[in-house]
Amino acid sequence: MPISNEFFKGFYKENPVFKLALGLCPTLAVSNSLQNAVGMGAAATFVLLCSNVIVSLIRKGVPKKIRIPIYIVIIATFVTIVDLVMAGFAPDLHKSLGIFVPLIVVNCVILGRAEAFAGKNSVAYSFIDGLGMGIGFTFALSAVAVVRELLGSGKLWGFPIMGSGFEPVLLLILPPGAFLTLGLFVGLFNWLDNKRTTA
């Protein structure tokens, strides 16, 4: 398989959120604004990239029996780095993402990629896989966030977009809006899939 496929599969064919239903907690929790979504996406991508590379580097020396705890330690290390750096340099983002920054540790996308891909493939492929999956995750988060922020508060990236006559659909910013928007997005992806296979 050409290496470019490893990169692009994360967007659509194996989109971690819409197709594999992984990493749902942060997708729901921080998609109330585009800024939060991109911030979370970038943080998760960084962790995914680093953990994929390290896991792939040491894959031959890791005893099978304790590979999961080792992966978890590696992931937790990079998550803590992100957590500390964000607290020091982007305190506002750090505050609005709250406990979902340390919770990147249990984001199943990351452990899933370490186990399913990086533990078995070369460093270059693992790097591309991490990058593609990370961007795919960010894309999914941002898609949900754009809908929720635009319709729920009439803003995008914090700037008012919809005119003054627009009455925001407050429900979309509240927790139920996250479930409804994500549900419809997954449905949309299923629908697109069905159309492709039947056509």
């Binding site: 304790i66 080792i70 330690v73 937790a76 290390t77 803590t80 500390l84 607290a87 020091g88």
Partner: peptide, 27 residues
């Protein structure tokens, strides 16, 4: 092996912490 990995992780984090701690307190 697990101890070793954790020790390396801990050492790396304490280095990062030294750099970021003053920054976080400043914030």
């Amino acid at each position: 092996i697990l101890m070793l990995v954790t020790a390396i992780a801990g050492a790396a984090l304490s280095m990062v912490n030294v750099i970021t701690k003053p920054k976080i307190e400043e914030q």
